[in-house]
Design a protein around this nucleic acid. Structure first.
Lengths: 216, 216
DNA sequence: CGGTTGGTTGATATTATTCAATGGTCGTGG
DNA sequence: CCACGACCATTGAATAATATCAACCAACCG
């Protein structure tokens, strides 16, 4: 969002730099090792950034919601370090070539500061998740995840009261929070039974915000 | 290192910008919430970046070795998000005021790219640790930590063959890797018994590099 | 010395994993 | 329209990994 404006504001003639793209549910936007060389801004749909360990396990690094950015890593390297994949939703995005952005940045160093800001924010989010992985139990991690997604959607005007779209599979949550799908199921079942949240056909309602915050 | 050069190379008259500092073992370099407004480059000694959770637990976010940088967060905010504290060693560092750096950056946008690079590298390191926390067992995490520190010291010429200084307490390792001190003790004892490493009076020797890599 | 810090060890408890079976939902092709 | 397979969630039982509690020991330092 911010980023779109930062780039688009540079000059009218630059608009051609923006390329549109879209992928179907579950399709990759780019894969680890690929030389994509573009910064991607999600317009619609949800995606994940993740890596696969040599033994086949998956660690999800972040959930991308509309307005989020991926591919900052291309600023300093050619090959993607992580993969980015659409979730159960179709995803549309716009993409900016790194080479073009660097060209613009020569004339407008403010854009580089935007990159600094983006990376610092992402770094911060990673470290927040690290605290969760290292020092919180399954219930707390799940509660925080739900709150985090709720707040991000809310800020972007994508929440309907206490109800948000929620397209994460339990396996995805597990791979983000360092748990197993089975355990995520058990914990979420309890939270539903406690009347903290309700989950139906791709949408989640927070029934007891206070209880949720208390857990988290 | 890199960063020192990037800043120092800007012009001779800028050298006055660099302030020296040092703290005793276990002292804070800065604390979460403080408005320090400086980027700190470690010259000597080890430190940790960490946060405390409301319930009193600690998550170590990274280990800082000589040459490492802290305080990049001040580029975009006034108050520290994390604390930085010396380990069992005295620490000396140099510090650069953010305000001065921003002034220099106006004349030399290359410096901003340096910031981008620093943040991307740190972000990358955080995510590597996330994978460890989320998807690896205690033995693998510890093996990777030892390898990581060994390689970083080696690169900076601070290793003596397979022997490195090693000033981490088990509690610190535990708080970094999301374990308890007791469990770290147990796992490391086994690794020592297996002849993978030896640990004596603040120095660690990797006896079987291949075995260590196999575990990690 | 005596106190403090850090490491080791044992017994037990908790948390989460693994394995396996079951049922629901959804899209697709016959 | 139905049957089938793919994917997802739920549940139970057994197990493994790690935490917790508590005691003890060693090194170090004033």
């Amino acid at each position: 969002m911010e980023f779109c404006n930062a780039v688009m504001g540079v000059g009218r003639e630059e608009r051609r730099l923006k390329a549109e793209g879209s992928v179907r549910p579950r399709q990759h936007i780019y894969k680890s090792g690929e030389a994509r060389g573009q910064i991607v801004v999600l317009r619609d749909g949800w995606a994940i950034r993740f890596v696969l360990t040599p033994d086949g396990r998956r660690q999800v690094l972040s959930i991308l919601l509309p307005g989020d950015i991926a591919g900052g890593e291309f600023l300093m390297r050619n090959e993607a370090r992580v993969s980015v994949q659409a979730l159960a939703t179709p995803v549309s995005y716009c993409a900016f070539d790194i080479a073009d952005l660097k060209e613009i940045a020569k004339r407008d160093p403010g854009l580089i500061w935007t990159f600094v800001g983006i990376e610092i924010a992402e770094h911060e989010a990673s470290e927040a998740l690290m605290v969760g992985l290292g020092r919180r139990n399954a219930e707390q991690r799940i509660a925080r995840l739900v709150l985090d997604i709720y707040e991000r959607l809310e800020r972007r005007g994508l929440a309907d009261g206490a109800t948000i779209p929620f397209v994460l599979r339990q396996k995805t949550i597990a791979d983000l929070l360092g748990l197993t799908q089975v355990h995520v199921s058990r914990v979420m079942t309890v939270m539903k039974e406690q009347g903290i949240m309700r989950l139906a056909r791709g949408s989640l309602t927070i029934l007891d915000m206070q209880a949720l915050r208390d857990v988290a």
